[in-house]
Computed example of a mutant assay.
Amino acid sequence: MLALPLNSENLPYPDPIHPIIVHFVIAMVFFSFFCDVVGYFTHNLRLFEVSFWNMFVASGAIFLAVIFGQFEAGLAQVSKAAEPTLNFHTVMGWSLSVIVVGITAWRYVIRDRLRRGQRDRHSSKIPPAYLGVATFLICLVCLQVYLGSKLFWVYGFHVKPVVEAMKQGVL
């Protein structure tokens, strides 16, 4: 088996990729929610379209984020103290990927109805139930951000001094 050499951050490439993709997904989910809320109150159908496409792209990108997160977590030297947080963060990541895809599918149905309603002039709003579920999604994303931040800032995942201390047995 051919193994790639790991750098001082315990990665085979210069910087962690997971946080880059994750921040992209977080921004898209939050912006989608923002567009839906503003569109709900202003009846601006263009904001609903922006919201849908943000969720659509986030649905694909979240899987890349989870896959790189799994790969990079596998390369991290995990202390016993960090294991519960990492395990919960992992379960939440996979769960969020399924939830985001499910909400995007629901959003697609709403988008289709809004487009038909635009022709019929019957409906120009997102259902309040969708906004409630989207609000719950935002809460889950905030929890996941907290867990990821804790892994980096408290437990030092892929932080050079922490990686070196773990290799030397200091931590």
Rank of each mutant, 00 (worst) to 15 (best):
H122C: 04
R119N: 06
G156E: 10
N87M: 10
F157T: 03
V98S: 05
Y130G: 09
I103D: 02
V91G: 06
A76Q: 07
L4C: 10
I99M: 10
L171W: 13
T42V: 05
M166F: 06
F152H: 14
A3K: 15
E83S: 13
R116Y: 01
Q70K: 09
A27V: 06
R46W: 10
D120W: 04
C139D: 05
P16A: 13
G102M: 09
P16Q: 02
R111E: 05
A73S: 14
Q144I: 07
G117E: 04
L75F: 08
S149T: 13
V170H: 12
G132P: 05
T104P: 06
H43E: 12
R116H: 12
A81C: 00
L64Q: 01
N54S: 12
G69C: 06
Y155N: 07
L114D: 04
P12C: 11
P5Y: 13
P19Q: 04
L11I: 10
V109L: 12
I21L: 14
V163K: 07
F30K: 00
G117Y: 05
Y146K: 12
C35F: 11
G69R: 03
V91Y: 13
H89C: 02
V22G: 03
L11T: 11
H18Y: 10
L137C: 06
F63C: 02
R115N: 11
R111G: 12
L47A: 05
D112V: 13
D36H: 11
R46T: 09
F48M: 11
N7H: 10
V101A: 15
F56H: 06
C142Q: 08
P19C: 07
L151Y: 04
D112N: 14
E83I: 14
A82S: 15
L131H: 07
G169C: 12
V57N: 02
M28G: 00
Q77D: 13
A82C: 08
H122S: 15
H18A: 11
W53I: 05
S123C: 00
L151E: 14
T42Y: 01
H89A: 08
I62M: 10
D112I: 03
N87A: 12
V100F: 08
P128D: 08
L11M: 14
G93D: 05
K125Y: 10
V109T: 09
Y146H: 14
S8C: 00
N10P: 02
F157N: 04
T42A: 05
L47Y: 07
P16L: 03
L64E: 00
R46K: 13
C139K: 05
V170S: 09
I103N: 05
D36V: 05
F24I: 13
L131W: 09
R115P: 00
H89M: 01
Y13C: 07
V57K: 02
H122A: 12
P128C: 01
V91K: 13
A3Y: 12
A61C: 14
D120V: 07
C142A: 15
L137M: 15
F48P: 03
I99R: 01
F31M: 12
E83R: 14
Q144Y: 09
G60V: 09
F41Q: 06
A129G: 02
V29C: 03
V37R: 02
A134L: 08
A82H: 08
L2Q: 10
V109G: 02
Q118L: 15
F33A: 11
I99G: 01
